[in-house]
């Protein structure tokens, strides 16, 4: 056991030393792996931020319920109580037609034109806020229920674009999954090819090792460690790319989010992302090396 651990330690440090002796080639390979890992990771971060923003906008999915023009204010006040009693409703507010006109007059700058009107063209309006954990189906059902009330002229739901955003995010999640799979396969091929070249360049050494009694495991181990180191270095570079990207994009993104009146905080790299990127690097580096070693090492025999 001690001997086994010692051999591993020797291979582990030896392979790192080998990589350090050719820094440019090592950096280039690690950079390719790093970029390949950073792409799905950054897409994932984008989707997570999108979900976060969509979640924060969910709070604003209120109904605007416009009553018929001939509805009395007293009837409107009765409706407030009636609607508040419905399942899925958190709060109902009433904006009278007079209040709405006064507000419009003040905000539109059309005061003099509006003075000319004989009748108030605006209806009484109810603002209905659903409960927080209402589902999309329940939201639709509530909208239909409100539309069937006698005094109601029009029910407007402003959540369609949030639903569209959620659908888009679902689609993007699948894109991330597909891109991640393809890029991991790419990393496997890159590492596999690098190790293959390494095996070819050390062909004589491998022959000698086998001649003096080295087992397949003994010959294989340094190459697996090289793949592992490539994966770790690639993972670290991917995190560097993500950190740099987050730093560069943070300010303009905050401005953009602010324009949509959202209070959502932007999500940066968390421990889970760091873990996934590093694990992805390690697994793809080691896996790529294993693939190359399994395929090419057995073909080299002493002659």
């Amino acid at each position: 056991m001690k001997h086994w651990l010692k051999l591993h330690w020797r291979n582990c440090t030896g392979s790192l030393r080998d990589l350090a002796e050719r820094p440019l080639a090592t950096l280039l390979t690690a950079a390719v792996i790093g970029i390949a890992l950073a792409m799905p990771a950054s897409l994932n971060l984008l989707v997570k931020n999108g979900s976060n923003l969509a979640g924060s906008w969910d709070d604003a999915r209120d109904f605007s319920v416009y009553l018929k023009l001939d509805t009395e204010l007293s009837k409107a006040q009765q409706l407030v109580d009636q609607i508040e009693a419905l399942t899925g409703v958190a709060q109902v507010s009433l904006t009278s037609a007079d209040a709405a006109l006064a507000d419009f007059r003040a905000s539109s700058g059309l005061g003099e034109v509006l003075e000319e009107l004989e009748d108030n063209p605006l209806p009484h309006t109810l603002g209905v806020r659903p409960i927080e954990d209402i589902s999309v189906a329940e939201l639709d059902a509530l909208g239909q229920q409100l539309a069937q009330l006698d005094a109601v002229e029009l029910v407007q739901i402003d959540t369609e674009w949030v639903q569209r955003l959620n659908a888009m995010l679902d689609f993007l999640r699948r894109v991330v999954l597909l891109a991640s799979t393809l890029l991991v396969i790419g990393v496997l091929i890159i590492v596999g090819n690098t190790i293959r070249l390494d095996i070819q360049s050390r062909r004589d050494e491998i022959e000698v090792l086998k001649l003096v009694g080295a087992s397949d495991g003994f010959v294989r181990r340094p190459f697996l460690y090289v793949g592992l180191w490539y994966g770790i270095l690639g993972g670290l570079l991917a995190m560097l790319v993500l950190l740099l990207g987050s730093w560069l994009l943070a300010a303009p993104l905050e401005t953009l989010v602010g324009l949509y009146a959202s209070e959502a905080n932007l999500l940066g790299m968390d421990w889970a992302t760091i873990g996934w990127v590093l694990a992805g690097g390690v697994l793809s580096g080691w896996g790529g090396a294993w693939t190359a070693v399994a395929r090419h090492l057995s073909a080299i025999q002493p002659s």
Binding site: L211, V212, G213, S215, D216
Partner: peptide
């Protein structure tokens, strides 16, 4: 094949 390394370790070549 898996026994060959052990066999070779008995030899000096």
């Amino acid at each position: 094949a898996r026994e060959i390394p052990r066999h070779r370790r008995q030899l000096g070549v």
